[in-house]
């Protein structure tokens, strides 16, 4: 088990940060699931250390313009669009 069990308050906070509405049943359900997921991470402690590959550094590209997508390609996956913009709900 993880050291600190996940309580309902924490689930609500994370959901709020992700702008996701959860009802009370879902909060309970996710609290249990979060705890399970954190347990999986504990399994990583059991993995033996291996020699790491040397890290890459300074991977860069030159400042040269490449082709972009055109507007219709850019919007192809959008669920809604208007006048070439992505369209979404109010976000205050």
């Amino acid at each position: 088990m993880s050291d600190t069990p996940v309580d309902a308050e924490e689930v609500r906070h994370v959901a709020e940060l992700a702008r996701v509405n959860l009802d009370e049943d879902e909060v309970e359900e996710f609290a249990t699931q979060f705890a399970d997921i954190l347990d999986y991470f504990d399994a990583l402690d059991e993995v033996p250390e291996v020699d790491a590959e040397p890290d890459l550094v300074n991977v860069m590209r030159s400042d040269e313009v490449r082709d972009c997508l055109d507007q219709s390609e850019a919007l192809e996956n959008a669920s809604d669009a208007e006048d070439g913009f992505f369209k979404g709900p109010r976000v205050s």
Binding site: A74, E82, F85, F86, K87, G88, P89, R90, V91, S92
Partner: peptide, 12 residues
């Protein structure tokens, strides 16, 4: 305004 808008348009 930002609080009362009907919807949002996004330009990347």
């Amino acid at each position: 305004s930002i609080d009362t808008a009907d919807y949002t348009l996004v330009n990347y």
